[in-house]
């Protein structure tokens, strides 16, 4: 039976790698499109690459250790291995080796990620202005942050979106309001202000590799640069109550021209004041 059980444990890396490989070939049956969704953000590839880097690294370790496990089970099956056991309590050298190698790898992974993290969450887009001493590119440069194009407010259970309108400032009477319908211009750095009216939500754009919990009492900024035209999902990724599942929004990325047209249309619809046109989109 020892042989059988060893093969069962061999099946783990074989099938595991198989499943991942099949999933990564995005058009293979039955795992069609069971992999990272289409990336439409300019910096999305960074996260994808990191994901893949870690996947390959851990994949090697996974396959290595699993194969070792299989091989030891196969070889040292009590029914077959008739010699005496190797009576030993460990090896100091080995312990040191297999402590230092993973430690170094892990530290490398950690430090390797720092920039990507900073780009995604810390360095908000803006223009650098001369600092107090009047010179550019010094420590005390002032940054004029890019204003958000829209404010996205999570509430139970919808995303209320509010475009800055003509004056470029969110919160004035010329704002354009939509529900669950976020349109953005392509190839431009987009900054969104996100906030919550009631409980925690999470603003998740799978196709932009962007996720940020929306915390009541906080206004946060998220930013990315869409690079493809199309229509994509906005998902809520933090439990926000019974209707959590239905917080579906739609993000439409379009050319600047289309976007402006859309925004003007929205503004016009919002000003609708005669009955004849009420059947409009």
């Amino acid at each position: 039976m020892g042989r059988f059980w060893s093969l069962l444990f061999l099946a783990v890396p074989v099938l595991g790698v198989g499943v991942f490989a099949a999933a990564m070939m995005t058009d293979s049956w039955p795992l069609h499109n069971h992999w990272l969704p289409r990336d439409v953000s300019e910096k999305g590839y960074v996260i994808d690459n990191l994901f893949n880097t870690i996947l390959y690294l851990t994949g090697v370790i996974f396959v290595g250790t699993s194969l070792a496990l299989f091989w030891f089970l196969w070889k040292y099956d009590g029914e077959k291995n008739l010699g005496p056991v190797r009576f030993l309590h460990g090896s100091h050298t080995l312990e040191v080796v297999w402590s230092i190698i993973p430690a170094a790898t892990l530290l490398f992974i950690a430090i390797y990620q720092m920039n990507a993290w900073a780009d995604a969450k810390i360095d908000r887009p803006g223009t650098r202005l001369a600092g107090a001493d009047g010179r550019m590119n010094t420590e005390d440069d002032l940054v004029e942050f890019q204003l958000p194009i829209a404010q996205v407010t999570g509430r139970q259970f919808e995303w209320r979106i509010r475009y800055a309108g003509r004056d470029g400032v969110v919160g004035t009477s010329d704002d354009v309001h939509t529900v669950n319908d976020l349109h953005l211009p392509v190839d431009e750095e987009v900054v969104l202000q996100i906030k919550s009216d009631d409980v925690l939500h999470s603003f998740f754009l799978p196709n932009c590799r962007l996720k940020q919990d929306v915390v009541p009492g906080m206004k946060q900024m998220v930013w990315f640069k869409p690079k493809e035209v199309g229509s994509f999902d906005i998902v809520c990724a933090e439990l926000c109550g019974w209707g959590h599942y239905k917080m579906k929004g739609r993000m439409t990325i379009q050319s600047r021209k289309d976007f402006d047209q859309w925004l003007t249309d929205q503004e016009r619809i919002q000003q609708e004041s005669s009955f004849a046109l009420s059947e409009e989109e």
Binding site: F157, E158, V179, D181, K246
Partner: peptide, 23 residues
């Protein structure tokens, strides 16, 4: 019909009635 359709499409802001426009 338009009234009912509008409510189903846009939902009712300030209530639990969601917008079904995207769904």
């Amino acid at each position: 019909d338009d009234d009912l359709t509008r409510i189903v499409r846009n939902g009712i802001n300030g209530t639990a009635m969601p917008s079904f426009k995207e769904m």
